[in-house]
Design a binder for these strands. Structure first.
Lengths: 185, 185, 185, 185
DNA sequence: GATGAATGAGCGTTCATTCAT
DNA sequence: AATGAATGAACGCTCATTCAT
């Protein structure tokens, strides 16, 4: 349902009728809508996490790893627009009481990126002052692409996969040439 | 209203009472909510466009221009979360029948970026194969930052302005070092 | 509706269908159920107040006044069980945010009683230490009768009007013989 | 549960989780909610009955007995608002099919009162024409006090225990001075 | 004796929209 | 140009109850 209509189209009633149960039945498994969405978010992170873990191969160079990782992320986003929306775009106001612990999985993904970046530093191919900050910026780049493509905000004249490819290439290359000083703030 | 509550908090009733008119009166000016939001989107693009135009100064180098432009964009997003949301994140489903022509303003902004990039090429400081593609990728980077910051998905331990600064710096630098071949797709 | 089903049977939907309107329409006149019930309570007090005022005649002795007043109160309760319930029995939990000012009307009624009691003192027929306290106790007596009769808790073998009469007589006489000391608490 | 939330807060689900059983299990012991509440009502009467029996001492004068009895009743009501509510205020509509026999306990309490009144007559301190009627009126007085205090309808400026004391005193004294003719109805 | 799964009915409420005036 | 009155649809949610196990 998330895929088709996005979060806005996600109502207890619709879910119920979609799965062939009464709306009441959902409340047997989740205390309320918040918790259900919450569970979906966790599931989304689990899927993304698995996909990312699955793509990494020991023996790969840092650049190769990063490339795979970025492509996996973008692919996940484009293939799971509903999950992606609740994971990364759902307005905070709708997310009251969502346990911070559940974002640990998300952090976990960022940590993987960070680790690859550090590996690249060891290999001498990346030169980063603040790997965590760099991981965030990388994430922004990928998210920007996924987000705008999903929101159909990109020019139809450009192929989406070309956009994705360029984004990933730019993102990875940015790390390779990043030998300038970091902000002093 | 958009600023305070975001798109979710935007209802005809609330708008009506906020402007001191009856809800019915809105329908004298807009056929429906879609068209009203549509108008708001145009207004948003007008604001962003004006902000970006206002920041550019003749005589600036391409890099300087690009820096200013990027910062202006990010600033606009962070200062106008509601506008930003409907301009770039609102789910397509809610946007049926939105005339494509209205995205011309948006395109206009991209075109400005593209022009600056071309100027940088003339100056010899940028080396880009496909300036339009590059402009899009640049946009993705900025949007990713704005979007995730607005959605409160960034680690609280990192200062938001530092995130923004790093993003802009990375984005601009990416253009400067982009001397590799473009995708063959 | 209150008459037939009591407060428990008072739902926005039922009201709506009872008056031949949609449930939504009620919200055009009252912000919510609380306020609607609130308005009903005020209306109830207005009715009771009018009934009590209407029964008092200048020239009556205090005892006569009190008798009429008590009978009017009991009669009101028995004839308007729904109103009576929300006025005097509705559980406080359902009454959050009910402006205290609205109970001023209720107080007003008590004040009338108090005034009559003071008049009786002047006439030398009542001897009361604390007229306000006495007015409350009198109220308790009447309310007890109304409340239990409405709740069908009285023995069916006793005629309800006889119960009411006895209650009123006892209540009035209690004031006449009250020449003992008041509590020292 | 009745004590904390009153009848309104009494749901099968809540009861079930409170006693550590499933909601379904309750139906093994009671055909439905009505019967369960019914049982609670009986339990309430048992508690009240025991309290009243326990307070009576052989050797007490009728007046003393009556005083103790009245205080016990009021105390029970104020201490067990939930029980008191279902015993004496619950709307008849919710009580369809409640066997009248179960009110025998209630009657029993009234009978105790009646007996004390007759004892007082023998002692020459009470002069009552219809002891059963008088017992009812006495009950009304006490119930009125309990009911209005529980419903938070009394003026906050008057101490509740003072209200209770005055009520009891008035009630007892009413019997002592009741030497006038009864209604002719 | 006990339960998990399931449900229909109902709740108060909000929404975008229409229409006669 | 403006509005009050009205509505159907939908929302999240709670309830007492049933039934197969």
């Amino acid at each position: 349902m998330l895929v088709v209509e996005g979060y806005a189209g996600l109502s207890m009633r619709k879910i119920a009728s979609a799965i062939g149960y009464s709306a009441t039945s959902i409340y047997l498994h989740y205390p309320g809508k918040d918790e259900l969405v919450h569970a979906l978010i966790r599931e989304g992170f689990r899927l993304l996490s698995r996909k990312i873990q699955g793509v990494l191969t020991t023996g790969d160079s840092a650049v190769e790893s990063l490339n795979k990782l970025c492509h996996a992320y973008v692919e996940f986003g484009l293939e799971n627009p509903g999950y992606y929306e609740i994971m990364f775009s759902l307005h905070p106001v709708s997310m009251t009481s969502f346990p911070v612990s559940d974002y640990r999985d998300a952090r976990g993904i960022l940590t993987v990126v960070e680790r690859v970046i550090r590996a690249g530093e060891s290999e001498g191919v990346f030169m980063i002052e603040d790997p965590f900050l760099a991981a965030n910026v990388l994430w922004f780049q990928l998210h920007g692409a996924v987000s705008l493509i999903l929101a159909s905000r990109t020019d139809v004249s450009i192929d989406k996969s070309r956009l994705a490819d360029s984004t990933v290439r730019t993102a990875v290359r940015a790390l390779m040439s990043d030998r300038l000083e970091s902000p002093k703030s």
